[in-house]
Amino acid sequence: MTSLSLHLLINPNAGNGSGKKAEQLVTAALSKKNIPFHVYHTEYPRHATQLTEDLLRHTLVEWNDKHTGDFPLLVVLGGDGTLHEVINALATHTDIPVGYIPCGSGNDFARAIGLSRKPLEALDHLLSLSTPDEFNTLIYHNHLTDESGYLTNNLGIGIDANIVATANKSQAKKWLNKLKLGSLAYLVAAAKVLIKQKGFDLVIKTSKESEHYRNAYLCTVTNHPYFGGGVALAPNADARKEDMTLVVVERIPLLKLLRLVGQLLRKKHLNSPYVHLYLDQQIQLTCQSQQFGQTDGEELGLTTYDMSFSTQKRLFWL
């Protein structure tokens, strides 16, 4: 079995303090097992990116099963946002594996790959492995800024991003996190913005077809089923498959919209004529009006969009 030296990148504020509690449990367990580890705490936004870049320069190496000595494994203790920062810092270094112990409020990536959201169970699973596994992640290229980014979850435009922005600003999220009910914060936010979100003009292109929507309500490119703390927007999406999933939902009258929300919560929404699903390895979308956007639950703010998407295989110690 491969021996490991763990480099724990910890967001103590993840999940409104769940990160700090997870750190206590994990470090105590590692000490008891005599497994070497080093701790790095994030202290402000984008700090996880800086810490990862420092480790990339001095410590982290590509996976090689012939590695001698303890293999330096980066392990993220945080939520989807912390993992997002780490993956973007590693960028094209796809053969450097990343371990993950989820302790955020949403934990959608953990849900998608079947990883326990209990810290000690996630740790035991990590320590039971002798080799990393390969998952597909997403790459987006913003043609307006000529910048690229990397995603473990999804990029959304419209109502889902509006919900994220509203939830992140709400006081409800803080106390719901304390009650271990952080996912409900997104439902509370949805109730606030469901009607306020207007339809928008959207052009989508895949390798097989193109479509112009004049009253889009939601547009999400995703790598797995979940967004917003466990809502299965794309129930059949799979991070092991190379095809991305694009979901477009049209703006419809309130009563039909409420019915569609009920279908979404029961995973029956794909039967709706107002929900459109595309599977492809190449996707492009254009929106010339300013709309809320989100990447892995991180806000993009109000902006316009001209983006193309592709997939990238990456090693995870999961």
Rank of each mutant, 00 (worst) to 15 (best):
H41D: 06
L277W: 08
V61N: 08
I139F: 00
L4P: 02
N107P: 11
D306L: 06
K20R: 12
K169D: 15
G15R: 02
T220V: 15
A89T: 10
T303E: 09
T52I: 05
A14D: 05
D146A: 12
P36I: 03
K205P: 00
G297N: 10
Q312F: 00
E211G: 00
F309M: 04
N16Y: 02
D124M: 02
F316I: 14
T166H: 10
T137W: 01
N64D: 15
K196W: 10
N162F: 12
E43L: 14
N107V: 06
A190G: 13
Q294R: 01
A29P: 04
I10R: 08
L151G: 09
H7P: 03
A232K: 15
W63D: 03
G78M: 07
H125V: 04
S3M: 10
I283V: 13
L265R: 04
T2M: 13
V247A: 07
F37G: 04
F135T: 05
I252D: 07
D124P: 00
I113W: 08
E299N: 08
L202A: 13
A191G: 07
G81V: 05
K256N: 11
N236C: 03
I159N: 02
D54A: 08
R117H: 08
A234R: 04
I159P: 03
T94H: 11
L302W: 02
Q291F: 00
I159L: 12
L144M: 07
L202K: 02
E211F: 15
L123W: 04
I87A: 09
H141K: 15
S148A: 13
N215M: 11
L51I: 15
A190Q: 01
A191S: 14
K180T: 07
D243T: 10
D306P: 03
P253D: 12
D238L: 08
L127Y: 01
K208N: 13
A239R: 03
R266E: 10
C219M: 12
L315M: 15
C103N: 13
G199A: 08
L126C: 05
L6Q: 01
N168P: 00
L184N: 00
H141Q: 14
K198H: 10
G19D: 08
S210K: 07
R266C: 14
L123V: 02
T52H: 05
R46H: 15
P235Y: 12
A185S: 14
H141Y: 07
F309C: 10
C219S: 13
L56W: 03
L90V: 04
Y186S: 07
S148M: 05
H58F: 11
Y274A: 12
P132S: 10
Q294F: 05
E147N: 12
S310W: 02
G156M: 02
L257T: 06
K178F: 05
L254F: 13
V275N: 13
L176D: 06
T145L: 10
E134H: 09
F109L: 11
G104R: 03
A112S: 15
H93Y: 15
T311H: 07
Y140E: 11
D133G: 15
A185N: 01
K33D: 11
G149Q: 14
K196Y: 04
L74G: 01
Y226A: 06
K173A: 01
T49G: 00
L126G: 09
L184P: 02
T295P: 01
G104P: 09
I195E: 10
K205L: 12
N107A: 13
E134Y: 03
L184M: 06
R57A: 09
F316Q: 05
